[in-house]
Design a protein around this nucleic acid. Structure first.
Lengths: 346, 346
DNA sequence: CACCCGATGGGAAACGTTACCCGTCAGCGG
DNA sequence: CCGCTGACGGGTAACGTTTCCCATCGGGTG
């Protein structure tokens, strides 16, 4: 058991004294800055190791960087986000940067504000916002204060970079796949959105749009059937129930997210319908849920890891050059066909 | 679009000037410290609002607290952890504290060290370690430096508090339930552990122990059958395959975690066995997976929210009184019987 | 009326690090 | 041999906040 009063922390002054150099010199070595000879570097590094010195990020933050990057997640429960986080940490593993996740409060503007403010107040060097719901002006305000990358939200701004997946194409992949299996009555469950900006920028809206356009492209404009609920399991359950109540039942349901598809499967099981014999189901995100054997959900894969990795790259670039023109990266999704979709029966 | 060069931040000096008081006075108001009259407080608060001042945590950290609490998660993917996190943030919602999550690198001592060091370097006021795998001495070293609460790991230390769930009892609940349904050949899949301390302290080992003891208590010592793999879906799959290869197949499988049970279900489906008719399956953690309709997995509920909430309470107490004697909280799990367990057939 | 006390306000020195700028010194060309 | 240059090392003032302590003041007590 250690002494209950923590021993005073080793500071840069201790290192300087131990190495018989100035604190300035130590600081230079730490930051690989100009003005230190190789011998000096070696001497200082030895002292650092001997004393077990680690710079105090809080003190650094007061002057310059904190070597900390904040990631705001809207919802830890969504099994798609870990992929993105993996991509982020993976790319940051061999840098001095450390990532911290801000626990999101499920798509609530106020919680988002609290978290982003907390990140700014803690002097984070850059932040990555994953599928934020806040107003555009709010995002730009954040980006004006600290280097920012927005992930999973379409619509670009001159002050922040974005990384998105092409949701329109993704939705089309699903429709193409289902049409290829002979389906015509393909319904879609979307996340209800009222805010005009979000209708343009949020991925869920883009998916609905992609669905619409793909249906039209296949000459199925009359069959377009969209139910608006929310992107949760309950939302999927509710949406499926509404669709089953239609005079003519759809032969396939395209849920806007895997979690929604979970709710759909649940509702179909309750209704005594079998998948895919009676009805086909597809999701979006290719989460572990989807790949899980007994479920085996057809889904769209977003390459979350690449999304995260790209977000970090852009962020580091922007930290290095604050004023650079903003970049938009759009990645292409792929379809993973599994056992919940099949050739239409009858 | 905001000006590209962020305007200088409002500081405590600005507030003081605007309110025509000293910076000391502002600081006192901010911290609700002694020595400020009600009028002074009102005046300062008005100035704060008018200027939109927010204290810079980095600067605070240099002198005192950062109002930041770090939570180390071993694996974001485990659907049980969000519950704990919810409990943590819920209790912290109306305080000045902010939580940040350290993305764990899947049960790796080195990653744990990196994350905890990063938290300490950033001057966090306290940290919560969820199911850490590091050596006891390492945990005590951390706790000697910063107030610490360890969650989900048995074995106590004088320097840190712990919150655990009674895993022995939880395992017994499952065995009792299965025995009550007429099962005798009940197998268990555990997470393989070699480190002697961890065998005592880790929840997985406790569950295996609880299983053993409960089997003995029911006079089923001869039926004890444990497969050692890992707590992942693959681990469950592999474990189930081993069990199916037994000359006499078990009639029930108790997986040490829900994710493991997922793998088991997967393997059973592949083998053409139906659940629960041919074989019963139970998990542990009562994750959303388990409650999902089409799966409907019998599981043990750990009340993650309460675990998190208790962890925060202990942490705040320890932050307030650094030297207090350590506390161990052990919560009681409950069984949630669902459709993957049934009366033994034949 | 002198004295003391509690309540209130502020001055100034930390906290650990970085960034600006200035000195020194060796080597070089003229 | 002199002055210039570039490389290197260090002194010191910030950064924004808290904390220790001292000053002031009004009123109650002896």
């Amino acid at each position: 058991m250690e002494p209950p009063t923590p021993p005073r922390r080793v500071t840069i002054v201790d290192v300087a004294r131990h190495a018989r150099v100035s604190t300035t010199a130590v600081s230079k070595v730490l930051r690989n800055a100009y003005g230190a000879s190789p011998e000096m570097r070696a001497k200082v590094r030895r002292a650092i190791d001997e004393l077990g010195y680690r710079p105090l990020a809080a003190a650094r933050g007061l002057r310059g960087q904190t070597y900390t990057i904040g990631v705001m997640l809207p919802d830890i429960r969504n099994p798609f986000f870990p992929e993105i986080v993996d991509g982020i940490t993976g790319r940051l593993a061999d840098t001095d940067y450390q990532v911290f996740l801000g626990p999101g409060g499920c798509n609530d503007e106020q919680t988002e504000a609290r978290i982003t403010e907390a990140m700014i107040d803690r002097g984070m060097d850059g932040i990555i916002l994953i599928a934020p719901v806040s107003a555009r002006s709010r995002l730009e305000h954040i980006a004006a204060t600290v280097p920012t990358v927005v992930v999973g939200r379409h619509g670009h701004s001159p002050v922040y970079d974005t990384v998105t997946d092409d949701d329109v194409t993704g939705a089309a992949l699903v429709v193409d796949h289902l049409v290829g299996l002979g389906h015509r009555r393909i319904a879609h469950i979307e996340h209800h959105e009222t805010d005009p900006t979000r209708i343009v920028e949020m991925p869920n809206a883009q998916r609905a749009d992609g669905y619409r356009r793909a249906m039209q492209a296949h000459g199925l404009a009359d069959e377009i059937d969209i139910v608006s609920t929310v992107y949760t399991q309950q939302g999927g359950h509710e949406g499926a129930r509404q669709l089953l109540a239609r005079p003519q039942r759809p032969t396939a349901i395209f849920a806007g997210a895997d979690i929604v598809a979970m709710g759909v499967l649940d509702a179909l099981a309750e209704a005594g319908l079998s998948v895919p014999d009676d009805i086909s189901v597809a999701g979006y995100d290719n989460t572990t849920f989807a790949s899980f054997g007994p479920i085996s959900l057809t889904s769209v894969d977003q390459a979350g890891r690449e999304i995260g990795s790209n977000a970090v790259r852009l962020l580091l670039e922007r930290i290095a050059e604050r004023q650079k023109t903003s970049v938009q990266i759009k990645l292409s999704p792929t379809l993973v066909a599994r056992r919940t979709t099949a050739r239409v029966s009858g």
